[in-house]
Design a protein around this nucleic acid. Structure first.
Lengths: 113, 113
DNA sequence: GTATGATACCTTGCCTAACAAGGTATGGTG
DNA sequence: CACCATACCTTGTTAGGCAAGGTATCATAC
């Protein structure tokens, strides 16, 4: 379900997306890929080449912390969770996202509703 | 009112923004800058270095056409309007934008509402 | 027994959009 | 005369998203 428009619209949203998912619970990267796809009914298809570097970057920035856990089958999984700084960032980003949303609505008229 | 977050969130939205403004009426670039700022109550501060290249690109792509008109005072203004192709594009982009919006809502939970 | 696909992690290199910072020109206001 | 708002534009940098590759484990199918 990867269409050409994904990219232009997705740009900049990946950060908020990760922060929001991790606000709910700790998750591993592969799980995030599936969750994003499932919840958007296939509209989003987060790419691995986008997600992994983003996670590493956010970990370096002190927003996330990672912990390996064994799984019943297959390779161990690397679970990410929010640090205190990450939780503050999540809150802040969400507020910003809302403000951008309403601004877009104002500019687009009913088109953005 | 330029804040650091503008960029990440704005990415990819400029195209839709232009198409939507021009759906209403022909406008010149400087006017678009003001309109975007006014309607969003200062939340958006479209940059000239973003807008002008975007307009030129969209004109080359056959989405817009430009026409110079004299003004009572100052320099002549370059009015942009949608071509037939541009109108189709505007419709299509708006639909995509809506689908992305609802996908984001689904992922963010009430955070995106 | 081996091929394939799902799971699960990762990196390198390219492309393009957004921006900062600069430039030109005109008219009005202090 | 200086300065600001209007109005157009360009160049160079940066950073984010992605395609395409790679590694390893396990289950299923043939």
């Amino acid at each position: 379900m990867v269409t050409a428009y994904d990219r232009e619209f997705l740009t900049g949203t990946v950060g908020v997306l990760i922060l929001s998912l991790l606000t709910e619970r700790a998750m591993y990267a592969y799980e995030m890929l599936q969750e994003a796809e499932r919840r958007s009914a296939g509209a989003f298809h987060l790419k691995e080449g986008t997600l992994y570097p983003a996670l590493h970057h956010m970990e370096r920035a002190g927003l996330l912390k990672a912990a390996w856990r064994e799984s019943d089958a297959g390779r161990p999984r690397k679970y990410y969770s929010l640090t205190a700084k990450g939780r503050r960032q999540a809150e802040s980003k969400r507020r910003q996202w809302k403000s951008i949303l309403s601004a877009m609505r104002a500019i687009l008229g009913d088109a953005g509703a």
